[in-house]
Design a protein around this nucleic acid. Structure first.
Lengths: 161, 161
DNA sequence: AATTTATTTTGCGAATTTCGTAATGAAACA
DNA sequence: TGTTTCATTACGAAATTCGCAAAATAAATT
């Protein structure tokens, strides 16, 4: 995979704000040709560095309850539990972690009742979940889906499988 | 705000997979005119239902360490702490929660060392953080940035401020 | 250092998409 | 039934994307 240089990062930065910014516009901002932007974007896409998506506002879709749930799983069942959870549409995030909880998931619901039904009925049905620690989101202060600009170029180690 | 109907949801679903799908293409798939797609999308954007963004792969950007950190804050300092945290580029998510932790944040780093430096130097500098409970992400099983298709239309309560 | 080789950038014309806008159609209301 | 409102459609104009070949750059080799 080719190294991601400063121009690439600038492209990503721009697309972060508006994923539909025309190539011509990006080209103009970065003072290169449209073809350059196009070839770089298609390379970044090919390398799986980023993808075009949309970000929806859960509240506007009627999902007013968002919860993080820390799970303790029975030894040896973690992976299976994770995969089962990932199948559920309410669950928007599943990760295995070190620390207090073996798995942490994020899920969203229309209301508190749906949440409690989820915990009591859906989670309890999954074999291997020992405990669930629910945290209800009261207010969101930040959420960024793009990691551009965190560790700059120099932090990039040479290569990686 | 106008009700989000099935066509809107289908549009969002398509854009979820590829945020650059042309209006003409969506129109063709949904068997309506391009103008309809265009007017619906601009309305959804105006209503803040969604926005065009990109999703970058942290690993491809050299960010191999992702952590969730549960924070306990001093009573009355939660909001200020949250705002300070939101300013940090490493921090990609900040939320206030009910439950074990007052705040939960997500942050990413190039390596473990940067993480420990962050916890020991950045977090400790913020006035009002009582305790930090770090969970290291070992594996990610699912992450969806769009909530379309969770609670279908019928789950949408009438209106909301 | 010179030459080859590989890669990136640029510059067009053609195809496609988006945009502006006015006409049409459909639902809500009086 | 007539009126108002709002969504959909149609279509030409403007802008964007695409395909591709030439030029420029960078990297590798001798």
């Amino acid at each position: 995979m080719r190294k991601i240089d400063h121009v690439d990062r600038q492209i990503l930065q721009i697309l972060q704000d508006d994923g539909r910014t025309p190539y011509t516009e990006i080209a103009h901002q970065l003072k290169v040709s449209e073809g350059t932007i196009r070839s770089r974007i298609s390379r970044l896409l090919l390398d799986g560095v980023f993808q075009f998506v949309i970000r929806t506002d859960p509240e506007k879709l009627g999902l007013n309850v968002l919860a993080f749930i820390g799970l303790t799983t029975k030894l040896g069942r973690q992976k299976e539990v994770a995969k089962e959870l990932a199948e559920l549409p309410e669950v928007t995030f599943v990760g295995a972690f070190s620390g207090k909880h073996d798995l942490i998931i994020e899920a969203c619901f229309a209301n508190n009742n749906e949440l409690i039904v989820f915990v009591n009925e859906q989670l309890s049905r999954i074999e291997g979940i020992v405990a669930a620690d629910v945290s209800l989101e009261l207010k969101q202060y930040k959420e960024s889906f793009s990691y551009v600009g965190v560790g700059e170029d120099e932090s990039l180690p040479t290569e990686r499988g």
